[in-house]
């Protein structure tokens, strides 16, 4: 949405247009107004209630089973919930979730920034419009389709890459490959990277497009090359925007369920090598253990879901803080 072109004659919309009239209506006690205000405030409160009850119900179910857990919930490398007493812990899930998300971010962010720059500053104009449009649409492709593609097309084609990594980087231990099917955390990371690429690209592109033209023209007038323009005026302006775009992508990567479940060979252990099958993520574990779970097992899965919920809350909270800071510094919002 390019705000400025829509309303050329109107004054720039104030952040809260309704506030001006609020004072005048304050005293109004017309029943219609009161009902309408009640309805809309009620909706807002309902939203808060939903968030609160998510936390409450998940916590309630989680604490039905946590006292029974014979293992330590944070350090146990087991997920054995259908026996009495159960023995389970989220250590492997935390590791797998964090590692696969980090891989996804490391792969997706540079490429996404590259595409965004390509579309805004490098591509021929006739090309950039349609491509931007297509990438927009790709952001809407359902994750199950990525999962299907990942399992049936991506995994069988990764042997070459894995062999190469093992040959040349195997000595690090991280890229050591025992020759199993390439259904490891690295594959998950690659697939997640492909999934979040369109989202990060879209948001970054919006940010780069808002770079004040004056900054760029000034740099060009001083004889800067295109790369110098990008490095000195576009990237600094867009940095926080890119960070919040990345956070958005990170949120998606952390919670992705089905695409991970289709390409990962999960085991409850932590391996040094990212190429050997194994590990697991919160969401994938919930999806794959749910079937055989008894009531106690379900509560244990809900407990792990609660942890995922908290993690995503933290990530989103951080993203919001960054966006808020950006609003303060950005020239466009001054």
């Amino acid at each position: 949405m390019d705000i400025s072109t829509h309303t050329p004659t109107a004054p720039p919309p104030s952040p809260r247009p309704g506030q001006a009239e609020n004072r005048t209506v304050r005293g109004a006690t017309r029943p219609g107004d009161r009902i309408f205000l009640g309805l809309s405030r009620g909706s807002g409160i309902a939203l808060l209630l939903i968030m609160a009850s998510i936390a409450v119900f998940l916590t309630y179910r989680a604490f039905k089973v946590l006292p029974e857990d014979t293992g330590n919930f944070f350090t146990t490398f087991e997920w054995n919930t259908n026996v009495t007493p159960p023995d389970f812990g989220i250590a492997v899930l935390v590791f797998g979730t964090v590692v696969s998300s980090i891989i996804a971010m490391a792969l997706a962010v540079p490429v996404a920034v590259g595409i965004a720059l390509f579309l805004t500053h490098y591509a021929p104009r006739r090309l950039s419009g349609p491509i931007a449009y297509v990438i927009d649409l790709l952001a809407a492709v359902p994750s199950i389709v990525y999962g299907l593609w990942g399992a049936l097309i991506l995994v069988p084609n990764l042997d070459g890459l894995y062999g190469w990594l093992d040959d040349y980087l195997g000595w690090t231990g991280i890229f050591d490959w025992q020759g199993g099917a390439p259904r490891s955390l690295l594959t998950v990371g690659i697939l997640l990277a492909i999934m979040i690429l369109p989202i990060i690209t879209n948001v970054s592109r919006e940010v780069f497009r808002q770079v004040p033209r004056m900054h760029e023209e000034a740099a060009l007038a001083l004889g800067a090359t295109r790369w110098e323009v990008v490095r000195m005026s576009v990237l600094p302006f867009g940095r926080s925007g890119v960070i919040s775009a990345s956070m958005l992508g990170l949120g998606r990567a952390l919670g992705e369920t089905i695409a991970v479940a289709t390409v990962l060979s999960p085991t409850f252990e932590i391996k040094a090598s990212l190429l050997d099958p194994g590990g697991g993520t919160f969401a994938q574990n919930i999806a794959s253990k749910f079937g055989e779970a008894t009531e106690q097992g379900r509560d244990a899965l809900i407990a792990s879901g609660l942890v995922l919920f908290v993690i995503t809350l933290l990530v989103n909270g951080a993203a919001r803080l960054i966006i808020a800071r950006r609003a303060e510094y950005s020239g466009a919002n001054a």
Binding site: R16, P17, G18, Q19, N22, L37, S40, R41, G44, I45, L47, L48, I50, M51, S53, I54, F57, L58, L248, G251, L254, G255, E256, T257, A283, I286, A287, L301, I302, G305, L308, F309, T312, L313, V315, N316, G317, A319, R320
Partner: peptide
């Protein structure tokens, strides 16, 4: 937009943002 100000509106704005990031499986579990 039309009425909100004060703590309630701030809280709602914040939690709407946070809610955007809820993983779908967590919504399902809830």
């Amino acid at each position: 937009v039309e009425y909100g100000k004060g703590k309630l509106a701030k809280a709602i704005t914040f939690f709407v943002d946070v809610m955007t990031g809820i993983p779908s499986i967590v919504a399902g579990l809830f």
